[in-house]
């Protein structure tokens, strides 16, 4: 079986298990919706100032919900020592990384697909620019977050305080992705000319490439630790 098919199989396994238990995705979704509700009380959704921080609001919800998913992704592999079962099978160990990445990316995208319309309705603030650009920003930023997050989740999975440790080491590293996501979202939703925020697209694309390439090269060594 080709490398890509094995990656797909590993992601299928995670999706299948999650859709049966719904433990991770329901926690992520509840968290994202709670953030929407809390911010709706904290700020008057009808005020114009809220629009300037809208990008920040949605990414607070998405990234912190994503942390819940990342924490669970390798925790499931620790149960019954399943990660060793994968490592003993004839797959390139980097396929394990990409399978996990793909699964968590799918979970985050599902949460975003559900939560974003709720954000838009409650704050009455749809993208003034292209919807395609909005979708591209969300997919790129989510990919960058999940790419390095999956790697660090594997790194922290065997520590006692992994759920605390992961966000502590993840967020300083993904600051460029966080800033890029917020700025590009503000540009797309505010209907700014593409030239005004295209730099943030490039930042997201470059960091995505780096955050995928580095774990790909290092994941084999990480599993040996």
């Amino acid at each position: 079986m080709s490398f890509l098919r094995k990656v797909g199989l590993l992601a299928w396994k995670d999706l299948r298990a999650e859709f049966r238990t719904k433990e991770m995705i329901s926690a992520m979704l509840i968290f994202a919706l709670l953030v929407i509700v809390i911010f709706a009380f904290a700020f008057d959704p009808s005020r114009d100032e809220v629009r300037s921080i809208f990008g920040g609001l949605i990414w607070v919800a998405f990234f912190f919900a994503g942390i819940l998913g990342l924490n669970r992704s390798f925790a499931n592999e620790r149960l019954n020592d399943a990660l060793h079962g994968l490592m003993l099978s004839p797959v390139d160990h980097s396929a394990i990384y990409f399978g996990k990445l793909l699964g968590t990316w799918a979970f985050m995208t599902i949460v975003e697909v559900i939560a974003l319309p709720v954000f838009i309705v409650i704050y009455n603030y749809a993208p003034s620019g292209s919807w395609l650009l909005a979708i591209a920003v969300i997919l790129l930023a989510t990919l960058g977050f999940v790419a390095i997050g999956t790697f660090l989740a594997a790194l922290t999975a065997n520590t006692k305080a992994s759920e605390v440790l992961l966000p502590v080491i993840l967020f300083p590293i993904i600051i460029p992705v966080v800033i890029g996501a917020v700025e590009a979202t503000r540009g797309v939703f505010g209907g700014l000319p593409l030239d005004d925020f295209v730099t943030w697209f490039k930042v997201l694309a470059v960091y995505d490439a780096i955050f995928i390439a580095v774990p790909f090269l290092l994941f084999e060594y990480l599993l040996e630790v």
Binding site: R16, T21, L79
Partner: peptide
């Protein structure tokens, strides 16, 4: 690794998947 199998006191199985799904997953790998 294709030549050997390992049976440990850990099962390496996924609790949320059925017996058949677990075997399908490893069989495809």
């Amino acid at each position: 690794r294709r030549q050997f199998g390992v049976i440990s006191h850990h099962s390496y199985l996924y609790d949320a998947l059925t017996a058949r799904e677990n075997l399908y997953f490893y069989g495809r790998l």
